[in-house]
Design a protein around this nucleic acid. Structure first.
Lengths: 245, 245
DNA sequence: CGCCTATTTGATCTGATTCAAACAATGTGG
DNA sequence: CCACATTGTTTGAATCAGATCAAATAGGCG
């Protein structure tokens, strides 16, 4: 399968939210992109770094995380094609967490100055990118609510609902099924659980026939009941509106 | 005590981060502001709302929260003078959570269009505001890590460290002491704990002589050991740098 | 095949919740 | 200025969701 060497996944993502003018699309296409293929489990940016570029996911799966002083890991988010997980580094000098690959992935690096120029030349795009980081924050809040106030069972169901919709938005769902390259330890660290408990809750989800999951492929068996189990309300993803910045 | 009727708390906050030009300061001062005094526990914006203005805290204490389907509450953040807790509504049409007062507070409403015009006229200010929402997100991540991976005791210590630094940045600390108008139930809902457990952990913090707390006033007894207890590293608050957008 | 990593299972333990009730504070109206 | 109501804090006891420890399976893959 051919992997894009252009910011095209970003364009596709933005166009799922808003319509782009010819000028805007052209400006995006002219972003300088230095493409790199990375193996699984490779750090891309680390805590304390002061990046001068952002990374756009072209293919694969990234995640953001932090290791706490006590040695525990917290995963903050998962990222797919079209995402710019470290867009924040455009305005926050020092990284306060890490970005890494979950599986072998292709990313494109875009220099900060190029993005800044883009924002000046195309203020509406600036708003759309800003908006993207705001959705990021909305997802953090939702995860926080899950970790703070939902059962393990509900948290996991919720995560699957979120991934399902986000992957669907970029066309990575077929037949209610998607690649889930996240280990149970990864799910545990994302949701504030232990591996053992994740394993047991997954078995419950399977037993309740909400999902099936083997070999890194997840199939939604009942979207209705999965959402219900996860108290899932997609509002926070702000996928809906084509009203723009 | 006289409460500002102008965006001056915002300016003070921004100037703690970066230097403003005369033009920028003037532009901020000319923001139309409709000031309102609110009693404690009043919702300012609600989930599902589609605001056409943002609210700037002039005085008091606000918080953001959400009620989950199961009836549980998650608090996402606390806000003090100079903050614009719902700045996100500038780019996200629908509110996915609520903003409310914790105590009687004075807020100033600024129409979205005025902020948009400001951003176009002063692109550097746009970056600074964007940056502000990114710090918001960084705080969410840190809370997520705490709720997911830290003990109750550490979470509470961490929260107090954060409030201490943020209040200090706007000059609301004197003699290691500050107003903490948050009930134990509030702390519980912010940190994913039960009220009872918060109460017991607070007693431990007092017993360890890290803090003293009565009548809504908190005094830090040992900043060193409080930070240590909370695994607190202030990097994520991005208070430091005067390097700008 | 053999190694390494992920999943699964079992047994035990504990941090934190829940329920229930007593006890301060703080405020309100008479 | 007191009596009452309301809201917040504290305490005790019982329980549980989820953690921890330890070991057995099961996949992948070079």
């Amino acid at each position: 399968m051919h992997v894009s060497q252009t910011p095209e996944p970003l364009i596709r993502k933005l166009e799922s939210i808003t319509d782009l003018t010819e000028a805007e699309r052209a400006a995006l296409l002219h972003l300088p992109l230095s493409v790199r293929s990375l193996k699984a489990d490779a750090d891309i940016v680390r805590e304390q770094d002061r990046p001068s570029q952002c990374c756009l996911v072209l293919e694969g799966f990234l995640f953001r995380y932090k290791i706490l002083p006590a040695g525990k890991r917290q995963i903050f988010s998962f990222h797919i094609a079209g995402d710019i997980p470290d867009l924040q580094s455009l305005h926050l000098t020092v990284m306060d967490h890490n970005v890494a690959t979950l599986v072998p992935s292709t990313v494109g690096f875009i220099p900060h100055h190029a993005i800044r120029e883009l924002c000046l030349a195309q203020p509406r795009l600036a708003g759309i990118l800003w908006r993207d980081t705001l959705i990021d924050a909305a997802v953090f809040r939702e995860w926080m609510a899950g970790i703070g106030r939902r059962s393990a069972y509900a948290r996991i169901a919720h995560l699957f609902c979120e991934l399902y919709l986000r992957l669907k938005a970029v066309g990575l769902i077929k037949d209610l099924t998607f690649e889930l390259p996240i280990t149970q330890a990864g799910i545990a660290d994302a949701l504030g659980l232990s591996t053992v408990h994740v394993n047991r809750s997954l078995q419950e989800l399977r037993a309740a026939n909400l999902i099936s999951l083997r070999g890194g492929r997840l199939t939604v068996r009942s979207w209705e009941r999965l959402q219900q189990a996860g108290e899932f309300d997609p509002t926070y993803l702000h996928l809906d509106v084509k009203a723009a910045a």
